[in-house]
């Protein structure tokens, strides 16, 4: 599984960092999210799914590959 982040959509809510801190972080200059881990470990997948569900801007996707 691979995580995709649509950066221009991000509104810096921080929800993904709270749900999956091992996978997401925020830029210092404007709080926009970036990926720490593009292919998260299996035991992080539930956290990533939660991040997908609560991202207010629908900016995160989890894709099969």
């Amino acid at each position: 599984m691979r995580v995709e982040l649509d950066e221009p959509k991000c509104v810096a809510s921080g929800q993904c960092v709270m749900a999956a801190p091992e996978v997401f972080d925020q830029r210092d200059e404007d709080g926009i999210a970036f990926l720490l881990e593009e292919k998260p470990a299996a035991d992080s997948l539930d956290d990533v799914r939660e991040a997908v569900a609560i991202c207010p801007a629908a900016a995160i996707r989890l894709v099969e590959q």
Binding site: V11, A12, G14, V17, M18, P21, D25, Q26, R27, D28, E29, D30, G31, I32
Partner: peptide, 17 residues
């Protein structure tokens, strides 16, 4: 909206908070 909001988001980032 996005232009202005992004000018004030930094101090509210999770780790800064």
């Amino acid at each position: 909206h996005a232009r202005l909001r992004r000018m004030v988001t930094a101090p509210f980032a999770v780790k800064r908070v």
